[in-house]
Write a protein that binds this DNA or RNA. Structure first.
Lengths: 261, 261
DNA sequence: CAGTGGTCTAGACCACTGT
DNA sequence: CAGTGGTCTAGACCACTGA
């Protein structure tokens, strides 16, 4: 039942009706996910109205031949990503995407997702040691247990950026230094069957000691950015404790927060 | 069809069957939310098995007199919070809660949620000025437009902790210094009808200038933790630009990450 | 193989928003 | 008031896991 006078009333998306979403029911990727991806792509490419209404859910589901819950699931995933906003009685809007890509050096994200992917990483130390008191506490193991101590120096453009110190229960994983430099720690953990679930981080600052300054090519007393992290797998077991030091002159953490109502 | 030999086979939760969830269909709070809250409370209080299986969804929905999607929605919200893990073919497990409450000073969270709630906040400056170049860029307004410049000194235990510098489009909000000290900035924004949606933050470090050192009761050159933030409302419009400086000796950011698959 | 979560449907009623 | 999203139901089939 196509209505004749179907022009935009408020500030609706004229593009949406003409957008052809290609949904493949044979694909192993869920329908709601296919739809979400295509909506996201449309937003990304500016095809979808940067500021305003995106037709209602019922019409959309009819047009796509999907049920409303499926369409809702797709939309909800984009709401969770912060790309859309829903208002009862009003409609669903595309958020003005202020968030472009103003990343400079590295970020919290690729620290987690692609640790070791950055320019170059040199493994300075890789040995099994007895857990010290604080490491044992963080990893939830007995003091003196065997843990792998890892120390890596990360450089970009040939300049030192960070000194990464990591501890892992040595039973968990074999850490080959060569692969570590090319593959990255988190990738190695994942292929060893460890599925990361959550992490607790503390970010602070302090002045560099003489030794740290020497290794990072800074002056003694220069400001350093520090980060401690304990990471857990999906059973809640601690799998990594990290102490990182960054040259504040060459590194900042930057990330986005979403406010959950 | 209650089966007779209903004892736990693997490491099921014996408590769950005896837990009585009180669902009030008359309440304005959604059923899935009521269920989620009560599940969360059960986990919090250790009533629900800290490490293992939580009966399957169909049984649960039958027992509670709810539909499966509703039960799933409740469970999903706890999965999103990181409290539960689902595995296809296996079941739903309670994550070992390593994450207790090891907060010390302040945190990213109460910075956002309860800005100004901390111990004491003194408004040092509160005036309308012409937007400088960087402020204008961050707030997406013309250079020279009227913006409210805010400068606050935060103390805990009588000691300075942070110097908070905020800029807001002056058209948005009337900022009364007295209320600002008692109520907090974000609370004032919310009651002015501004719904915060997202924010972009950059955290770094640098050495204190002489003036900063004097105001924060530090030595010149001491390490400071810095944070810049631009906050957006739900239309994507920038509503705040902030530049904060923290005494590294008295403040750290700490927060939790959840890894999304 | 039986049991689990993952996906999907086709309806329904309600609460809220704006006119 | 009509239109929107918010919630809820009672089914269905599939993909994966583990014994």
């Amino acid at each position: 039942m196509a209505k004749a006078g179907d022009r935009a009333r408020t500030t609706a998306a004229p593009a949406l009706s003409s957008l052809d979403f290609a949904l493949d029911r044979g694909s192993p990727v869920p329908l709601y996910h296919q739809l979400a991806q295509q909506l996201e792509a449309a937003i990304e490419h500016g095809i979808l109205t940067p500021g305003n209404l995106l037709g209602n859910e019922v019409d959309l589901s009819v047009r796509l031949g999907l049920s409303r819950p499926t369409v809702r699931q797709a939309i909800q995933s984009l709401v969770d990503k912060g790309l859309l906003v829903r208002r009862r009685g009003v409609g669903t809007q595309v958020v003005h995407s202020q968030v472009k890509r103003p990343l400079e050096l590295s970020s919290l994200y690729d620290d987690l997702e692609a640790a070791g992917q950055g320019p170059t990483t040199e493994v300075v130390r890789n040995e099994v040691v007895a857990a010290s008191c604080d490491v044992a506490a963080a990893l939830g193991v007995a003091e003196g247990s065997e843990v792998t101590a890892l120390e890596r120096l990360r450089r970009t453009h040939g300049q030192p950026v960070a000194l990464l110190c990591n501890y892992l229960p040595s039973a968990l994983l074999d850490l080959d230094s060569a692969r570590l430099e090319s593959t990255g720690l988190y990738r190695m953990m994942r292929s060893a069957g460890i599925t990361l679930h959550s992490a607790r981080q503390t970010v602070g600052a302090r002045a560099a000691t003489a030794e740290e300054a020497a290794r990072l090519d800074e002056q003694e007393g220069a400001a350093l950015l520090t980060m401690q992290r304990t990471a857990y797998d999906d059973t809640g077991r601690p799998v990594e404790y990290a102490t990182h030091i960054y040259r504040a002159s060459r590194y900042t953490f930057d990330f986005q927060l979403l406010v959950r109502p």
